[in-house]
Write a protein that binds this DNA or RNA. Sequence first.
DNA 1: TCCAACATGTAACAAGTTACATGATTTG
DNA 2: CAAATCATGTAACTTGTTACATGTTGGA
Lengths: 193, 193
Amino acid sequence: VGRRILKYAILGLLSKRDMSGYDITNEFKQAIGQFWSAKHSQIYVELKKLLEEEAISQYVEMAGAKLEKKMYRLTSNGESELHEWLVKPDEKVETEKDVFALRLYFLKDIAKDEISPLFDYQLSMKYEKIEYLKEQLEILFGETSDPVKLDTASLGHYLVLTKAIAREESYAQWLEDSLTLITQHHFHKGETD
Amino acid sequence: VGRRILKYAILGLLSKRDMSGYDITNEFKQAIGQFWSAKHSQIYVELKKLLEEEAISQYVEMAGAKLEKKMYRLTSNGESELHEWLVKPDEKVETEKDVFALRLYFLKDIAKDEISPLFDYQLSMKYEKIEYLKEQLEILFGETSDPVKLDTASLGHYLVLTKAIAREESYAQWLEDSLTLITQHHFHKGETD
DNA sequence: TCCAACATGTAACAAGTTACATGATTTG
DNA sequence: CAAATCATGTAACTTGTTACATGTTGGA
């Protein structure tokens, strides 16, 4: 049956302000895109469905002389659906899919000299991402001495960014540790074989 | 077009030993299931496709008097396809989807007294999972003084388990920190409102 | 005037889940 | 002998990606 996460992600975004499909697409390229995202093709289809369900309403805003922006607004119906979903504890935990970890599980089938480049590439991607996320945090909360003083709306944003940073840093640390271990392992095997 | 991760996950599993669809289903309930998994319905369909592609071959093993177990084995074709994939660096990074983080982003729409139970539930699930993963690590590598001395096949298993533990512990830590922050935030707001 | 960004949609396909369907074997 | 586990499959459906398709607007 599906849990329609995208539905609630869109309702959540619209609870902040009215948005067009294009705006929603862009939001998924920002902070929240670290934890949920969708392409415009999926978003426009979902918006149509939400309109039919009367969870949202539509109005047109002119952006220029001819360009029509279709704006969407939460209905009270949609608002209560969102609230219900937000406090409903998650039944099922989904497998977090991670292709690099999957590859590594089959380590024995990877040649020794191929492993290190794979790690190097992963690490450089992780560090790039960490840098980007920290920049975002700095831009948004750089002057904030104490996150306790943030307004409630910004607090959500702050928590999501710190989560993403923690996740990536933990990942990078594990990559470093594993590469060290594998290198030593090869050395050890080389010695004893 | 898709990247057919399941295809390579199955080929990887078959590189360790011959397996039936049922065996593969069970493997996804073990360690590697922390990073990739599939239901039996998807697995049987994929196995059929892999047979057609001649990446695997099939033979029948009797399990009892009437019960036929269809066993699959990597062909040399499948083996080289697996090797190629294992060393091909990942083009695209997929969004790691996390429904709890998504909810939290919409924090302002959650009533104060509803937030703490949500965190408590998440934390209890995380700690349960961490305990389970550490048990697995103990069972498999408990007597191992130094992972450097593991055989190469087990090393992959070890790395995947330590990865899962690091991931869950980092997650739990962030949950603890965030709950503290939110609690202080409410207190702060209560004082100043 | 060209290019990037703005703006919206559909179609085809791939991937993944749930439900339906059936039967054998082992263990208490 | 009942229940859990072993064992294999198909059908219907949802979700998500890629490709196709079109037109506007603002700035260099």
